[in-house]
Simulated scan of single mutants.
Amino acid sequence: MEIITNEKKKLSRQFSSFRLRSPSLNALRLHRIFDLFDKNRDGFITVEELSQALSRLGLDVDFSELESTVESFIKPEQTGLRFDDFAALHRTLDESFFGVGCECDGSPESDLEEAFNVFDEDGDGFISAVELQNVLKKLGLPEAGEIEQVEKMIVSVDINHDGRVDFFEFKNMMQTVLVPSS
């Protein structure tokens, strides 16, 4: 049992950037992911759409295994996962892989640091246009198409005009974008 707990702690630290601790950030992120996966915009994510999305992210999953895992979350009268079903699947996977206590303090600052680290792929403390483009590509967003467009996104938040986004600029941008829920 201790070996399993240690492995979960290790996974939790290793993949903490995939899991934000703030419920409001998680809900927003999950809605955006759902919308990205729902390619035909019918309000459902089919096993095929989920498989394609995971493949685009570089995660090769056996289709039959994915289907058997997801099937229990799809209601009989539906063609795929509605958002609530997708959220339940996410919670179940989250508990399975990260079920142990979190290593962070749960503060908004800590959540922002985690989010920043997702974009700062090389860990140099800055988000470059290339790093932003890479993340946008992984998410399948059309904004990733042209580096000039990505550079404009960087310029729009680059307060000190050094051509990249530091944590302070990222935090400032996020505070203007995210409105606290009541």
Rank of each mutant, 00 (worst) to 15 (best):
S24F: 06
I33T: 14
F170K: 06
L54D: 08
V155I: 15
H31F: 13
E114S: 10
H90V: 08
L132Q: 03
F73D: 04
T46V: 03
A115P: 01
T69W: 06
D62W: 04
L30W: 07
V118H: 13
F73R: 06
G145T: 14
V70E: 10
L141F: 09
K137F: 02
Q78Y: 05
S51K: 02
N160Y: 03
D84K: 12
F170E: 05
S110F: 13
V61I: 15
M1P: 04
S128C: 09
L178A: 04
H90S: 11
E113G: 04
F119P: 07
L57K: 10
D105Y: 04
L50E: 04
L136A: 04
G145Q: 13
I127P: 08
D85L: 00
R29V: 03
V130K: 14
D166I: 08
E65S: 12
L20S: 11
L59D: 03
M1V: 07
E121V: 13
R164G: 01
I3R: 09
P23M: 00
N160T: 06
N26Q: 12
A27V: 03
V165H: 10
D84G: 00
M173E: 06
E131F: 10
F15G: 00
K137E: 15
L66N: 06
F98C: 13
Q78P: 00
E109A: 08
S72G: 05
L178Y: 11
T176R: 12
L66H: 03
R21V: 01
S68A: 11
C102P: 01
V157A: 14
D120S: 09
F15W: 15
F119V: 01
E2S: 07
D122S: 12
F119A: 09
Q133F: 06
F15S: 02
D105A: 10
F126W: 15
L66I: 09
M174A: 13
R91E: 09
R13N: 13
G106N: 11
K137N: 11
M173S: 01
M173I: 02
A88I: 00
F167L: 07
F86L: 06
L89A: 05
F83K: 04
S64Y: 03
L139A: 08
E148N: 12
K171G: 01
I127C: 02
F73V: 08
E2L: 05
I4Q: 15
N40H: 08
V150I: 14
R32A: 08
K9A: 05
P180K: 10
K75L: 13
E113N: 07
D124S: 15
L112A: 04
